[in-house]
């Protein structure tokens, strides 16, 4: 309990101090994008890390949120929050509809099915040119909430930081609730959880829907912030990027997901200095991290620190 609040407090302090260390809007821009990715990853981590279910299609939900906002606000002039809610609802409905049959699948079949759904969503977004603008995407109006226009990197930073805190708080509470304990049981062994009377199918579906909603909301905000949305934000590579962030930072660790999102959002920008070698570097870093730290960055580091301190204590 205190541990949980401690983590949240630490995150809040880091988020509050971060802008002081950022020299210009470009870095603030990266922080905002990292924050939006982190929101998706915290949700996705509930599914991948705690419920033990792979999803290679979550960018599809990010895309649904983003395009719901783009189409409803820019084309049909809906209020932004209403459009955001509509996108989240649509994502939830789609996630709910596919959750039961798909989450019955195991391992690689589940990976295949979620991958398939993500790709289908991105192809629909790419192809329905008249509504979505096709592969080149569409321009999105700025976020306008009750007459206040959210504009400029500074303002956006605080909006995203606030939302990230709320998301992390929600996730932490969920993990600590009875539902969360059931979830953790699930990752250990589904059959065992079931024999203990846990309705695993219901919980898995619930987490799937919840993570889809997180992704959708982040997508809506991204569309407003970036001012331009393209189907690339919903495609397979983006889905892979999201899962990679979760696993890279540390599966089953909420703060790991945040760290993973932050590192992997910034890394490609830093790697541009390697010019032609940047993709090689990215692939190499991913491979090496996963080979040598299969549990991810944060849990491995935490394990190291723990081993060090317990060793010191004994001495």
């Amino acid at each position: 309990m205190t541990h949980r609040l401690l983590g949240l407090g630490l995150l809040a302090v880091v988020l509050a101090l971060l802008p002081l260390g950022l020299p210009n809007n470009f870095y603030l821009d990266m922080a905002i994008l990292a924050g939006l990715n982190a929101i998706v990853c915290v949700g996705l981590n509930l599914l991948v890390g705690f419920a033990g279910q792979v999803s290679l299609g979550h960018a599809g939900f990010f895309g649904i949120g983003a395009y719901a906002t783009a189409v409803l606000v820019s084309t049909h002039k809906w209020p932004a929050l209403l459009a955001l809610a509509a996108g989240a609802l649509l994502s939830a409905v789609i996630a709910f509809a596919v959750a039961r049959p798909i989450l019955r699948l195991k391992g690689h079949y589940l990976a295949m099915a979620t991958l398939g759904i993500g790709i289908i969503i991105s192809i629909v977004l790419r192809t329905e040119t008249r509504i979505t603008g096709g592969p080149d995407g569409m321009i999105v109006d700025p976020l306008n909430v009750f007459g206040f226009e959210v504009y400029g990197e500074r303002v956006w930073y605080w909006v995203v930081a606030g939302l990230l805190l709320v998301t992390v708080w929600l996730a932490l509470n969920l993990i600590d609730s009875p539902v969360g304990r059931a979830l953790r049981a699930l990752h250990g062994s589904e059959v065992a959880a079931e024999t203990l009377g846990v309705d695993t199918a219901r919980f898995k579906a619930m987490v799937f829907v919840l993570s889809a909603v997180f992704a959708s909301v982040a997508g809506s905000l991204f569309a407003h912030y970036a001012g331009l949305i393209t189907p690339a934000k919903a495609d397979f590579l983006k889905s892979v990027e999201l899962v990679t962030m979760v696993v890279f930072g540390g599966m089953a660790s909420t703060f790991g997901a945040v760290v993973g999102a932050a590192i992997l959002t910034v890394l490609p920008q830093l790697l541009t200095v390697f010019q032609d070698y940047q993709h090689m570097m990215l692939g190499l870093i991913l491979m090496l991290t996963m080979v040598f730290m299969p549990k991810g960055l944060l849990p491995t580091l935490a394990g190291l620190v723990q081993a060090r301190t317990s060793l010191g204590g004994r001495r």
């Binding site: 821009d29 592969p135 970036a226 001012g227 331009l228 949305i229 690339a232 541009t272």
Partner: peptide, 21 residues
């Protein structure tokens, strides 16, 4: 010079980088 790889969203973010950074 930044390479957008033919993707509009990358072009937008590199434009931002050129203007801001």
């Amino acid at each position: 010079v930044y390479d957008d790889g033919g993707a509009a969203d990358k072009a937008a973010s590199f434009t931002k980088r050129l203007l801001e950074s």
